[in-house]
Nucleic acid binder design. Sequence first.
RNA 1: GCCACCAUAGCUCAGCGGGUAGAGCAGCUGAUUUGUAAUCAGCGGGUCGGGGGUUCGAAUCCCUUUGGUGGCUCCA
Length: 645
Amino acid sequence: MLKKLRRTVIRLLKEGNITELDKRELIDLIKESQAIAIKVNGVLKDLSALDSINPHDTLEIVSQNSPEGLEILRHSTAHVMAHAVKELFPDVKVTIGPAIEDGFYYDFDRESSFTEEELRKIEKKMQEIIKARKPFIRREISKEEAIKLFENLGEDYKIEIINEIEDDKVSIYEEGGFVDLCRGPHIPHTGMIKAFKILNVAGAYWRGDEKNKMLQRIYGTAFPSKEELEAYLRFLEEIKKRDHRRLGKQLRLFDISDEIGAGLIIWLPNGAVVRKVIEDFWKDEHLKAGYQLLYTPHIAKLELWNKSGHLDFYRENMFAPMSVDEVAYQLKPMNCPFHIQVYKSELRSYRDLPLRFAELGTVYRYERSGVLHGLLRVRGFTQDDAHIFCTEENLEEEIQKVLDFTIFILSTFGFDNYEIYISTRPEKYVGTLKNWDRATNALEQALKERNLPYQIDPGEGVFYGPKIDIKIKDVLNRAWQCSTIQVDFNIPERFDITYRGKDGYEHRPIMIHRALMGSLERFMGVLIEHYAGAFPTWLSPVQAVIMTISEKHINYAENIYKKLRDEGLRVKLDRENEKIGYKIRQATLDKIPYMLIIGDKEAEGGRITVRLRSGENLELIELEKFIELVKKEIKERKNIKEVPK
RNA sequence: GCCACCAUAGCUCAGCGGGUAGAGCAGCUGAUUUGUAAUCAGCGGGUCGGGGGUUCGAAUCCCUUUGGUGGCUCCA
């Protein structure tokens, strides 16, 4: 259909003379093709703009299945929602309502929030508006006219927006009597909204500034078809099921206790095992990669943080200092000053560089209570931190090494898709332009050489140097910010660290901060959601559970238990006086990878029956063979893609 | 921090407009000796997050406090 449409359009344009008849033909075609808008010379316009195209314009059809079309559909749905709200609650003032990644929102000024009941009413009213198939009508009017219009309507926020628009003219859209200031474009009529849903409400400041008034935001989403909407709602369900807070409780991985404090994690035995395995892996690999491991204290004199500059630029994220023998001490928000001290503990020569200091350093940062979130946003966490001290000449090579190392670590956990960003020099910065260019170049070069696609975040670097941020994509294709590689020109200067060069003079080393997983807490949270709690065997808190058919098999089961434990496997013996079905259910809910079932058959032949958490059964197998298989799986850190229900 | 909502047994939750608490699971005890996602029975367990107020009477209404949840410019 679209092809036919394009052909027609091309023909019409080539002929250079569009008759009324052709236009009608065109419009029919567009209707049939589910077009939602058009692009004239690359500019998005309403479908109605078709009436005013010129023979030499380029024309593109925007269907509601394209990203742009979907955005328009959602934006129009936001208008319909505002319309419904105004009809139901005439005193409410409308503000803005854009389309966002997975839907749309609209912010309203109203004293109280919207209740569930009111949301359902709004949805119902929206249905009515949609059913009425009201056309969206665009009008361009002068600013004065617009101000008058919205003054009459009592829409102060719109007036504020109009006053900030630079053009003399603004556009308004009207649909079923509801007028809104809007750039557009919009769908031709409200009847084109086939599937939408109001999702939730939240407070939001006018223009996101907490000094402004708190508005009531309603979130919703819309799709071209009911099927797509339902698929999206199922996706939301899946996210809920994988929520690390829920799984963390269910699998007894971690806890956050009111009595201990908000944003502070306690690791329960199950979670502690997973963390230990990750830490061991991390340390081993760092040693192999030429890092040296460090341990540093959790507090230090406040003066250290003054010298490092953290007091100037990081104070609001730091816990309040404490007084020890009348000297102020500070809980550490970062590890770098300590690593600097390690550097300074000896005289360094160019022969020593690069020096790579790594530490699983626990830091404490003050986060506002409202932003805390499970393991993902906390007040105390352990960074998998390292600082690399190198010369200018080393810089590029070191960055490449870090990049390779990062990819290796991340892919071990099954993260093979990344979004990579380079943040360049901000307005306020330290260091020389030459150094910034050189470092930014080194970051870019490293990514290019590894064929890793990246985007530039202009001016988003930290004041002390440019950086690479890596977001990993989990199985649900959600992006999580974990890894960061930052060049720092500031701290070496502040602490006046040097090395003796070949030339016999003192030089200033460059420092790279880097974290691969970011924080262990956060990374664990991501892992839990990524694996839906079903850790691959090498990470699983319990790797195998032995269960007997009846109590008479306990002796044999104990033998197996001892053997497996001696082999270094994390194994549990289920001695409960229950039927096998019950034990299987428990182990399955605990997402334990292997269930070893022991009955008469097995006891006789010195074998075991293995059931996987997916429900699949392996053949009756020799114990030795099983041990061999599992040990191999663990050694290879095999990633299981299976997702048990 | 701000707005809204929430907090009842170890866990998940029910307790409609105020009349001093219930279920399932888990736990314990006993019976059962079991072959692939819940065997049966009995028992114990909560001053309803903390504090204050209204009331003859508060899990329920009000205030306050702590914690949690969804959000807080992807700009008409």
